[in-house]
Design a protein around this nucleic acid. Structure first.
Length: 315
DNA sequence: CCTCTATGGCGAA
DNA sequence: TCGCCCTAGAGGC
């Protein structure tokens, strides 16, 4: 699930779970043993997201930099009340544990300990991130408006803007009826401004609900829920997560101390409970929800692009 | 049980 | 352009 919203939510979860504490940091199967040893014994200052990168600042100028790639997962779960730390299952690159929380990293493409200078260098390679208050959309516009590459390619270029991935790309282009194949330099500034503003509105909902929401009715509902403070919790209990994922150890009872609390009345585990529904993403061959023509697909910038050839002809 | 696909991105060729 | 990283859900048998 990793577009920018996933990493920003993960940063919030890690922050809630570990900031101000000194977690035990390990690499259970060894591949990150050196880095884990460097971080073990240091306190967590802050976790933050920038584009699709996660940074966790530890005391003493050490930063953990994680990039989930396509298949990485970083599960943050509450383990308060358990008799012992849950066992490792699968390949765990990095494990962080304090009295109340457990975080297991799997399948990431980047997991390294970096210096402040290296953090700065990584950030310097990224374009503005719609999820960050300090983002400057003019930086993205400067690149896009001068480029002969298609807008579909540019939206995926993390140096142009950071955090947008294939789902937001397809969906935001549809929402604005923009042809994915229009070169950046032929996009009107008004159109870009509207796309950026839309991302600034949509992506925080993705963070709050841990799910990409782009359909008007879902966006509206999610906006109201956020205003009312009714959003899924940042962390769930480990047992619930393990069950939800369909994995976990053979002997749960050996690990569990407290009974499962009866908090499954509203708090969804791992997601928002909202139906997965998009305008065009993964709908190849199905009818466009507006004009009825078949949603098309083609590989662009190494990913499957989806668009409506009739609705997205202009702009 | 199996195979396929995926919301990334890098490096080799 | 392709292989690779190596998780996990979906769907077939």
């Amino acid at each position: 699930m990793p577009e920018g919203h996933t990493l920003h939510r993960l940063a919030q979860s890690l922050d809630a779970a570990f900031a101000g504490t000194t977690p035990a940091v390990s690499s259970p199967q060894g591949p990150f043993a050196e880095g884990a040893a460097l971080l073990d014994g240091r306190s967590v200052v802050e976790a933050s997201g920038y584009g699709k990168h996660l940074f966790v600042e530890f005391s003493g100028e050490a930063w953990l930099n994680v990039h989930l790639g396509l298949i990485g997962k970083f599960a943050v779960d509450r383990i308060s009340g358990y008799a012992s730390v849950p066992p490792v299952w699968g390949q765990v690159r990095l494990r962080m544990v304090n009295d109340d929380y457990l975080a297991d990293l799997r399948g990431a493409t980047i997991c390294q300990v970096v210096t402040p200078d290296e953090v700065t260098a990584t950030l310097a390679r990224l374009g503005p991130d719609p999820l960050r208050a300090d983002a400057d959309p003019a930086r993205a516009w400067a690149k896009i408006s001068r480029s002969g590459r298609t807008i579909a390619e540019l939206l995926m270029d993390q140096a142009a803007l950071a955090g947008v991935g294939n789902v937001y790309r397809c969906e935001v282009l549809y929402r604005h009826r923009v042809s994915p194949f229009r070169p950046g330099r032929e996009i009107r500034q008004r159109t870009w401004d509207a796309i950026w503003a839309d991302l600034v509105r949509l992506m925080p909902l993705g963070v709050a609900f841990n799910q990409i929401l782009t359909m008007d009715d879902q966006v509206e509902a999610a906006t109201e829920l956020v205003a009312a403070g009714r959003v899924p919790e940042l962390t769930s209990t480990w047992t619930d997560s393990a069950r939800w994922i369909g994995r976990g150890p053979a002997s749960e009872d050996a690990v569990r101390d407290a009974d499962l609390e009866d908090d499954d009345d509203g708090a969804e585990v791992g997601g928002s409970g909202m139906e997965r529904r998009y305008w065009v993403y993964r709908r190849a061959g199905e009818a466009c929800r507006v004009c009825g023509s078949r949603v098309r697909t083609q590989v662009v910038a190494g990913r499957n692009l989806f668009w409506c050839g009739r609705c997205q002809r202009r702009r």
